[in-house]
């Protein structure tokens, strides 16, 4: 079953990259989210998969009974999800503002910081 998930993660990454390479800012946002999900799943799978047993110790015991899921990747991913969401919100608002002030969501037309015809630096002292 690991290999099926590995292939699925490949699909996530591929689609994420493909959308990120698009010129539309909103599509890039979608790509970002999908790419993030892919990476989270990658970490999750690399920590090995265990069916249905959550890393929770039954009450009254000091140690889990039998095999439990690997808790470490889960802790890593949990914060990654929340930070990823904060990042996503920020990019969304940024794209929104860029659209409002530039009236475009095509990255090719967003050239305020790096104008196309930037003059040469002056040749003097």
């Amino acid at each position: 079953m690991d290999y099926v998930l590995a292939a699925l993660i490949g699909c996530f990454i591929a689609l994420g990259v493909y959308l990120l390479l698009s010129r539309s800012v909103i599509r890039m946002l979608l790509g970002m989210t999908i790419f993030g999900n892919g990476v989270n799943l990658l970490i999750f799978t690399a920590g090995r998969l265990t069916r249905e047993v959550a890393p929770i110790i039954p009450s009254g015991l000091d140690q889990p009974e039998g095999v439990i899921a690997n808790p470490l990747p889960q802790a890593l991913i949990l914060t990654a999800i929340v930070i990823g969401f904060a990042m996503f919100s920020f990019l969304l608002v940024l794209a929104f503002r860029a659209y409002q002030s530039l009236d475009a969501d095509d990255t090719d037309t967003m050239r305020v910081a790096e104008p196309v015809d930037e003059p040469n630096p002056p040749l003097s002292y």
Partner: peptide
């Protein structure tokens, strides 16, 4: 996540 033992996630 749910199926593979990560309810928190």
């Amino acid at each position: 996540f749910l199926l593979f033992g990560a309810p928190d996630l």
